[in-house]
Design a protein around this nucleic acid. Structure first.
Lengths: 195, 195
DNA sequence: GTCTATAAAGGGATAGAC
DNA sequence: GTCTATCCCTTTATAGAC
């Protein structure tokens, strides 16, 4: 049994945490390696024992976020459900995840432009998998007549933009709690597709 | 009658144009004064004849955008209309303006975090005026029973986020033209508030 | 694995000639 | 109003001691 009191702190994990927070708040270009190192109390050069460059650190955060998001979404949206049930599950999941992980989500949205190829293409591919899932749900509902969606591709983007915006304003302790926010967004999505 | 062929180009206006484009594409922190000057074919130091600092250049772009946006919105949304008509006018205006001025809009949304006080507070106040207009329309429609909006403040943010997202994906020459996009978003907004 | 020291480049801003 | 030249600072990244 390891002595956890004497375990050296996991610098790599701490770097991820502080970089995520700082990048989300000030933007990739607005944060220096010194800023990140300073948040941990180490020197800037020590970061290079854990990540080969600032770009690689950003890529690590982006890919890690997208893989966790996709995996969690697939767990939350059962394949066997009819389209209306899938849309409800997807919407609840998306809002809840964005409330719970605002920094990851905000970072992935805002700093894609700071990510260089080839990593950028990988992240876009992962994001497209996520979007395609919602697109498929809307298309299936349209085909079976339970949704009235004139333009499924546009509706996909409209719904994702609407729901993702929750990260910009939601705060714990505000007038609406987590569950009230999820229900309010769900109501707008369902009415928006004609349910 | 002035000889327009020999008129010196308006450097200040050209600086605004190129800075707007570069800031929107790479972010405020990702663009240097040398980048902006280079786009015009002048030296970096010449910028300081027109703007006292990089911050002032950003503030000029932000305030200019918000004032134009507010003014155009007030022209497009007549005060005398009933709430349903106002919501339709507001939605058509917002999508059209965001399609036509994507750089201004994207910049104002993304780079507010790079703007320092006191200018930042001014821009936020202007943005709040814009949001409050939509909030008032939804509140009036709710009060008169023509809208079913459980949470007007949330619905305001949800609608604005949904519509503003058009800047991320819309391109001239794509599968949907400007008018088709406006109608599709309008349909989703009206259904979303129960019309 | 972290430190000090340093390299090499780029950042915003200013001075003064023209 | 734009230029060249420069100041002073910060940046990412590397080298080598411990």
């Amino acid at each position: 049994m390891p002595d956890t009191r004497r375990t050296r702190p996991d610098t790599r994990a701490a770097l991820r945490e502080h970089a995520r927070r700082l990048f989300a708040r000030h933007g990739y270009e607005g944060v220096s390696m010194r800023d990140i190192a300073g948040a941990l109390g180490i020197r800037q050069s020590a970061i290079y024992n854990h990540f080969p460059s600032k770009q690689h650190l950003l890529l690590d955060l982006m890919v890690g976020h997208m893989e966790r998001l996709l995996s969690a979404m697939r767990d939350a949206v059962p394949e066997g459900l009819p389209p209306a049930g899938q849309l409800e599950a997807f919407t609840r999941f998306h809002v809840a995840y964005h409330i719970d992980q605002p920094e990851d989500v905000f970072l992935a949205y805002m700093e894609l432009r700071s990510l260089e190829d080839p990593g950028r293409a990988d992240v876009i591919a992962l994001r497209n998998q996520y979007e395609t899932t919602l697109r498929g749900i809307l298309g299936a509902g349209q085909a079976s007549g339970v949704f009235q969606v004139a333009e499924p591709a546009l509706a996909t983007r409209a719904i994702l933009a609407m729901l993702t915006g929750v990260t910009v304003w939601f705060r714990d302790g505000g007038p609406l709690n987590r569950e009230q926010v999820i229900e309010a967004y769900l109501g707008m999505v369902l009415r928006g597709v004609g349910r």
